[in-house]
Design a protein around this nucleic acid. Structure first.
Length: 573
DNA sequence: CGGTGAACGTA
DNA sequence: CGTACGTTCACCGA
């Protein structure tokens, strides 16, 4: 897999390409032609970028390279954590300690004296070998543009060196461990594809039915206020519905947990905290309890998904937009802002395909136990994945009800201690020793503060740097154990999901389809109505393709529920 | 003013 | 409740 370095200038006006035997630099408007030229000569090029967001100027022109190598994402994959600055990547490639590295210049006077380790004006690196500080914010590369493009080309060359170092290191490191080199490289590719997908998700946005959204917000938050007075009146009205149940306590601030606790005490209800889960069992005790719980639901929409949210994040084209991150979570899950990942189910009827379009909605079934079968290589559990309902064969093997088997499997993966899963857990250990050993090994490593790795090789730290292997207090150790146990499954599932999403992106684009939402195990594809059924078929096929490449075999079956819908709420639960 | 915990939405 | 995330709020301490 040959890599090409692709950089853009900070202003987005220029771009440069660096290959071993060929290079190009020029106006970004000419970059699509240069990219096409390379892709004509090289059948499967992979474009290395410092970060997929560098491709924004190209996406603005309506083009994007098909396959990318996102150096920041690959670095996070190999090293864990979130620090993937350009200087950090360079230090990794150069074997330099990151602690001594120059930082990007700030616009204050101190910077002029800061670095004793000054670079020659035309050198990208300092005498000690670090990237110069004024290259980190792009100002060094920009000097001389548009006439002098040599620095941008130098920048592209540095990028290519980093990318090739990463590629070689991944092949080496994984080749030695349990994973294969090809798996590590495949993961780097699909994590990079996810980073590009995140850019596209930001641009596309999630189509909504504005009228319906307005209606649903009005139901919870009241009509759109036109003044601060109206906003406060609307808020007081919501509060009054609860407070009228306890005359004399109208001054209670329902947003203050301590005051709510006092309010409940006046109703004869004593609770440790006022969480929903705690209050749920007191629903019958006093009418103020269900009123309070209903208030919380309305208040959530009023404050977080109300008028302000609508104005700030739903564009004039009726698309909800937010920033996406490809591997922001500790275990490498995708994250999204502005409610894209936690939109209340009550608002889902307002997520509707645009005129002439449909959603192809798909979600992975029983993804976590299937991923456990895959990453552990447990033959017996892998055989269970052949069934559409995995818990059925597990239940029969354990000689328990399906519901018991399900709770036990989930308890094993989450490290649950309470509840009645104990006996079935012992049965699981006998029936699926390989899978259970993987979970327990991860938990033990986590408890010791050691890092764990996902199936695709993502390093997940369980302790702060320098604290690895330290003796920690038992409650902390137990928490880390559960975290590590779950991170291996959750993180590996995230990798499979991203490989699936990347395959969907690659195989449905020609239908005019675009992915508009990724939600951990669920994907929404927006597609012209006439192509919807074909798109649904390809989404289903993409799972088998992605799973085979991800796992390197067909020993574990993954299943998706795929449907063509107009509104997200039509999805079956 | 920034940081923290409570609370709750999603998977 | 078992894990993860993002957002808003009240509170605390500087």
């Amino acid at each position: 897999m040959s890599l090409n370095g692709l950089v853009t200038s900070p202003s987005g006006t220029h771009a440069a390409i660096r290959r071993h035997d060929w290079s190009w630099v020029g106006a970004v408007s000419d970059a699509p032609r240069a990219i096409a030229e390379v892709e004509r000569l090289d059948p499967s090029p992979r474009w290395a970028v410092w970060s997929a967001s560098d491709l924004r100027p190209l996406l603005d022109l309506g083009t994007a390279p098909r396959r990318v190598w996102d150096c920041a994402e690959v670095h996070r994959l190999r090293r864990g954590g979130v620090d993937a600055s350009v200087q950090t990547l360079w230090c990794d490639r150069s074997g330099l300690p990151v602690s001594d590295a120059p930082v990007a210049p700030r616009s204050d006077l101190f910077d002029f004296e800061e670095n004793a380790d000054r670079a020659e004006p035309e050198s990208l690196t300092t005498p000690a070998g670090y990237l110069r500080g004024d290259a980190l914010d792009g100002s060094w590369q920009t000097q001389g543009l548009p006439n002098d493009t040599t620095r941008l080309l130098t920048w592209a060359h540095a990028l290519l060196e980093v990318a090739e170092h990463q590629q070689a290191a991944l092949a080496r490191e994984q080749g030695q461990g349990s994973g294969s080199a090809s798996r590590a490289l495949a993961t780097a590719a699909s994590e990079s594809a996810a980073a590009l997908l995140c850019l596209e998700l930001e641009r596309a946005g999630l189509p909504v039915d504005r009228e319906r959204l307005v209606e649903l917000i009005t139901n919870s938050a009241g009509p759109r206020p036109t003044s601060l007075e109206e906003e406060l009146a609307s808020r007081a009205e919501r509060d009054a519905v609860v407070l009228r149940h306890l005359p004399g306590r109208e001054s209670t601030d329902l947003r203050n947990p301590a005051q709510v606790r006092a309010l409940l005490l006046a109703a004869g209800i004593e609770v440790r905290d006022t969480r929903k889960w705690t209050l749920e069992s007191f629903r019958e005790a006093h009418p103020v309890v269900p009123a309070l719980l209903a208030w919380r639901t309305r208040e959530r929409i009023a404050t977080t998904y109300g008028w302000r949210w609508l104005d700030a994040h739903v564009g004039p084209d009726d698309r909800l937009r937010g920033r996406w991150a490809a591997s922001d979570g500790a275990a490498g899950r995708m994250t999204a802002e502005n409610g894209l990942h936690n939109l209340p189910a009550a608002l889902r009827p307002a997520v509707r395909a645009a005129a002439g379009h449909r959603f192809v909605r798909a979600d992975l079934g029983q993804i976590e136990p299937r991923v456990l079968a895959a990453v552990s290589g447990d033959r017996a559990l892998a055989q269970a994945t052949a069934f559409p309902d995995l818990y059925a064969p597990v239940a029969s093997r354990l000689g328990v009800d399906r519901s018991v088997a399900k709770v036990a499997v989930l308890a094993a993966m989450y490290g649950q201690r309470s509840g009645t899963a104990g006996e079935a857990l012992a049965g699981l250990r006998r029936a699926y020793p390989v899978a259970m050993a993987l979970l327990e090994d991860a938990a033990e490593r986590g408890a010791r503060g050691e890092p764990v790795r996902t199936f695709g090789g993502r390093l997940v730290r369980t302790a702060r740097p320098g604290e690895e292997g330290a003796i920690v207090a038992p409650p902390v150790a137990a928490g880390r154990g559960r975290f590590a146990r779950n991170a291996v499954i959750q993180g590996s599932a995230a990798e499979l999901f991203k490989a699936w999403a990347a395959t969907i992106r690659a195989t449905t684009g020609d239908l005019g389809a675009e992915i508009v939402l990724c939600l951990h195990d669920e994907v929404l594809v927006h597609v012209p109505v006439e192509a919807a059924s074909e798109c649904a078929a390809r989404v289903d096929a993409a799972l088998a393709d992605a799973a085979r490449r991800w796992l390197g075999s067909e020993d574990v079956r993954f299943v998706a529920d795929v449907s063509v819908i107009e509104r997200w709420s039509e999805a079956k639960a």
